[in-house]
Every structure is written in C-alpha cells, then in structure tokens.
Write a protein that binds this DNA or RNA. Structure first.
Length: 576
RNA sequence: UGGGGUGUGGUGUAAUUGGCAACACGACAGUUUCUGGUUCUGUUAUUAGGGGUUCGAUUCCCUUCACCCCAGCCA
C-alpha cells in the first residue's frame, strides 16, 4: 500500500514460499536475495519488476539484497553500463549504502570458480573438449533425440588438467576448446547434456582487464556466486526454469566435495514483465539506439528507466505498479495503460497546474479597456496551483486584451456536444473572465479551404475571477495564455513507439511495428510566464492537456509524460 | 518430436481445509467540478473445452485443447 494510492499489493507466491521456509526453519530464517544484471545495456521497465521483487522481498523479511553484476562475458560488457545501472537503480529508489552495500561482481569470484573447476576435473566430472562449437551443438541431439558423447569425454584427468591450465595461460585461440561438465548426454533436459563451463575469450574484461583468457558461463558462475555470497533465494525469470537442474547439480557436486554447505541457495522462477506496445529485448533496444531510431538509451520513448525518467514518470509510480501486478508464473502481458494509471494517480496529487497553449490561436477582446497611455490594461488574476493540495497555494498570471487559446478550443462550425468556444457562445477563461465569441477572421489555406486566423470576443467585466454575479453558468472553462506575456517553449508529444499491442506479432519483426511518427515536436508553444521558472526535470500539469516534464538538460523543452483522461477524445473516437 | 511450465472478464491479479467468483485498469452510463481532469455511484465473468466425485468444484480426479520455455562457447 502507498499513501498516493490505496490499490492493494498483489499476492506473491515467492513471499508465500519464504514464509513456508521460515516456518520449516530452512536457512534458519535468513533471507538473502540478489539483483544480478549483466552490464551490457541499460535497465528497463522489465528490470524494474525484478528489482522490486528482489529488494522488496528481502526488505520485508529483514534480509539482504545485493546488487551483483553478472559480468562473465567480456565481449558485450562495459564499465559505462555498470555506472548507468547503479545510477538508474538509485533513481528507482535502491541506493548504495542504504539499500545495498558495495556492488558485487561475479568477476570477483573468477579465481574461486577456477579452483572449483579444477576440482571437478580432478573428480572426473569435467573435461576439455576441442571440437568445434557447431559439432558440439549437433551432438547435443534434439528434443526427443539422443545425444552423442564427445570423443574427448573420457580424456584422462591429468590431460584435462594440463589443457585447462594452458587454456587459462592463453595458449589457445578463442573458440578452440571449452571445459565441459560431464553429466549425461542422454538427459531429457538439454541443459544437462554436458554443458559448457568455460570458454576462451581474448577480449578485455571491463574489470579484470586481460588477467583472464577463459571465462565462466552463466550456469557455472551464477549458482556458485549465489552460494559464495550466502544467497538463500535466487529469484529469476521463467526462461531459467530448465537451468535449475544444472544450478542444483553444480552446487551439489561442490557440497559433496565439502566445498560448500549442503544448505544450498534455491532458484525460483517467476514470469517476466511484458507490457503492451513495449519491447524490452536489450539487444533490440541497443539496435534502436545504434540505428538512430531513437535519440539514445534515455530517449523519452524508450522503456529504459533513464527514458522513463526523462519522460517524467515518477519512480514511485513504477514501484507501485510493480507491487500491484504481483509475482506469478503465468505468462501475461500487462496493458501499458495500467502503468500509466499509476503515473496519473501520483502526478495528479503532485504536479502543479499551469497553463500552456500548444497549438496557438489568437483571440482579441474587442471591448478590452485601455489605460491613460492608450495601452491595453493588464489585469493580474489568481490561479490555484493544485486543487488536490491546498498547501500548494496560488499564483498570479497576467491577462490582457490579446491571448492564445488552443486551436481545438474554437470551432466556427461546432460538432454535436462541443462545449468550447464557437460563434455566439460564452465560455469561461480559467480564473479570468467570461468571454463571448462575436466573430472570427479567416484566410485562404491554399487548398480551397479556409483557416481561422483570429477569433474575436467581448468580455464581461462583471465576471472577473471567473464567476458571474448573476450566477449564470457556462459549459466550458478553457485555459489561455496572455499574448503579451507568453514565454515560448518546444513541446514533444509522444505516441507509442510501437503501434502494435504486441510488437512483432504480425510479421515476426518488431521493427515492422515501429511507429515512424511516435514523436511530434511542437515549437513556438505559448506558456504562462510562471513556467519559465520550472526546475529542470520537474513535471507539471498543463491544464486540460496532460502532464509534461521539463527536460533534465535542455531548458524550455517539455515532454508529454502522459495525457489526461480525455472524455471528449472518446466521444470523437466513437463517432469515428 | 522429448522434457518443463501456464490457462479465471477486454487486461492483470485474487478467492481458508471444496461453500455467495473479489480488487484494480479499461470501457460504458450517471454524479461532482472554474480542467470534457478529479470525486463518487452503477454496469461490464458461471473460472480453456469435455467428463467424473460431491448437497456443493476456480479448488479434487480423468481427458482433450491452447499458449510459453529448453538443442549459444549469451545472460
């Protein structure tokens, strides 16, 4: 539960499992988890679920959750990703020194892992195989088909040891040989058909440099890293289900050899987060960045945490969303609208209300008074900063005889149920006056049609502040910005990056569903003067339009975080 | 094709030992409102299909079907 929102926290089968463990005295009531990203890309919304599952579970049971970089592949990893991950994790709400101690690295265990590998070799449980990788793959067999044992499978221990040591020493080329666990080439689980433990890589590792020529695979590194750190509950996503046998097998061998306690960490899998209109493959996200389809990892359309941050999503709303969707083993896809509802709920409470006109149309008040100098008078009107929070107070805004409204807020020929400004109709300008449309000017749009260039209105001086003394009502209250006082800004509007609910479903290629017009950049937008002081990165509500985030780097650039719910848009949609 | 996993409204998540299918998002209809926002109210499902046990089945049994994962020297 949160104070911003009383939607309940969903059930969580992992939590139930930990409760059961505690009742049975497993792990002596200790709970330790870990969040193990590979530093080969940026954290995204899918990671946010894993992060909250790992950290919040530990927190709930007064346990520990470490950040551990699963950095076992030098080819794809980079220190810059390590830094970005730490930063994004902190933004999400999990900070070094508060929520976890020092970041840990699988690469810190390379020596131990190596020693244990030698031990398995000595016990006849691992061997060096110098067959090419496609042959090894072929020999693995297929679903329902038998595997074929490698001709090197029964190589003498001494020879294995010698070769493995020379692998480490860098005597061999990449891909020329591997260390394999000797398990069972007929196992019905493919992961158990003599899996690879070590491969040779000449590349430079972001932390160990060129100290190592051989690198452990995920399977050989992961469970052992968990055990070294004292992890009790190793939580991961469903696709690792078939790896669990292997996870347990390695741990058992080491426990039997007296290297590890028999109380082993236990892997539990849960369904990964999937969202409609969203793609979270790190490889493909990288492709979007490299091909310039987006501005970068932190483009406001990206599902990365840095993208969502630029977009204006509050970190709290992401955490609340993750708590709400729960943890299960069901493959499912949440609607992006659900995430957005958490964003709106929180922003509705927090965001200051401001007025901004995105597509301006000029309005002239024909009966506006002038002062002694013959200049139009300027009236200061008071506006509420946030009707949801009185403590946010009020502000003053200038109003004069010329102002901007949205082009959508005037129709010369209004459709049914149109409440806004139209010839002969009176509307309220928020906090200012009632005005009545008396006419409009047009010009030839060059296509045989006409464009409205200016709207003429009269105002009722008795309605100052926005109320009529005679109590008469209007159908619409509109936002406005004084023409003489407006500040200008660029505003980016976003559609979904992928227009299909399930990107790639139709053709098999997610990039076919990429919306080429997912960003519309509006320039020359008219903002009320107060907005010039918006802190970088802050999110405000442009009244009647949506929530907008001031760019963290570029002043006077705003990103639409999410629109307001829009009943009028629904009415129009229904009419086709 | 062998193994593993999962099926509850448009969507996601619930439902003590078998006992009135609940909550939220969305949609729709109202209500409130100086934001077509917000608020509040109502409507929106017989639990993948078929059998069986039972007074009673989302829950137990049998069976059929659908979807997801596994044959990287990625994680």
């Amino acid at each position: 539960m949160s104070d911003a929102d009383d939607r309940p926290t969903a059930a969580n089968f992992v939590r139930d499992l930990v409760h059961a463990d505690n009742e049975q005295g497993t792990f002596a009531g200790r709970v330790q988890t870990r969040f193990p990203p590979e530093p080969n890309g940026y954290l995204h919304i899918g990671h946010a679920k894993a992060i909250t599952v790992d950290f919040e579970l530990a927190k709930e049971f007064n346990g520990v959750c470490n950040l551990r970089f699963d950095d076992t592949n030098p080819d794809t990893e980079d220190a810059s990703y390590v830094d970005a991950i730490i930063e994004d994790l902190a933004w999400l709400g999990y900070r070094q020194g508060e929520d976890y101690a020092e970041p840990l690295y699988a690469s810190d265990y390379f020596e131990q892992l190596y020693l244990w590998a030698e031990l398995l070799i000595e016990q006849g449980k691992a061997y060096v195989d110098e067959q090419p990788s496609d042959l090894i793959s072929e020999q693995r067999g297929g679903y329902g088909n038998p595997g074929i044992e490698s001709p090197h499978r029964d190589r003498p221990v001494a020879e294995n040891l010698d070769l493995f040591r020379r692998m480490r020493a860098g005597e061999f080329d990449d891909n020329s040989m591997v260390l394999r666990a000797k398990i069972d080439m007929q196992h019905e689980n493919m992961q158990m058909r003599d899996p690879i433990m070590y491969r040779i890589r000449a590349g430079r590792h972001h932390r160990t440099g060129d100290a190592w020529k051989i690198y452990p695979t995920y399977d050989w590194a992961h469970g052992q890293s968990d055990a070294i750190e004292g992890v009790t509950h190793s939580l991961c996503t469903l696709e690792f289900d078939s790896h669990r046998d292997l996870y347990d097998w390695y741990l058992t061998q080491l426990a039997d050899a007296g290297e590890l306690p028999h109380e082993q960490p236990r892997q539990t899998e849960f369904a990964r987060l999937a969202l409609t209109h969203t793609m979270t493959s790190k490889r493909k996200l990288l492709q979007l960045v490299e091909e310039g389809k987006v501005d970068g990892w932190d483009d406001a359309r990206m599902p990365t945490l840095s993208g969502l941050r630029r977009r204006g999503y509050p970190a709290e709303s992401i955490r609340e969303f993750c708590a709400f969707i729960g943890v299960s083993r069901t493959n499912s896809r949440n609607e992006i609208e659900l995430l957005e509802s958490f964003v709106r709920t929180r922003l509705n409470k927090l965001a200051l209300r401001r007025m901004a006109v995105l597509r301006p149309l000029e309005v002239v008040v024909t009966n506006w008074p002038t002062d002694e100098a013959g200049e139009p008078e300027v009236h200061q009107v008071e506006l509420v900063n946030n009707p949801e929070n009185e403590a946010d107070g009020t502000r003053m805004a200038p109003f004069s005889g010329r102002f901007w409204i949205e082009q959508d807020d005037f129709r010369a020929d209004p459709p049914p149920k149109y409440f806004r400004l139209t010839p002969g109709r009176e509307v309220r300008l928020r906090g200012a006056y009632f005005v009545t449309c008396t006419g409009f000017e047009t010009e030839d749009d060059g296509n045989g049609g006409e464009t409205v260039t200016r709207v003429l209105v009269t105002y009722d001086p008795e309605t100052r502040g926005g109320n009529a003394p005679d109590g008469r009502k209007v159908k619409s209250t509109m936002h406005w910005v004084s023409a003489a006082h407006a500040v200008e800004a660029d505003v980016a509007l976003y559609e979904r990056l992928f227009d299909a609910e399930v990107p790639g479903e139709a053709t098999g290629d997610v990039f076919d569903d990429l919306d080429a017009h997912s960003r519309e950049l509006l320039t020359g937008c008219k903002l009320e003067p107060e907005l010039a002081d918006t802190p970088l990165g802050a999110v405000v509500q442009f009244e009647r339009l949506g929530y907008f985030a001031h760019d963290p780097d570029q002043p006077m650039l705003f990103h639409r975080t999410v629109g307001l719910r829009d009943e009028w848009a629904n009415i129009q949609k229904r009419k086709g």
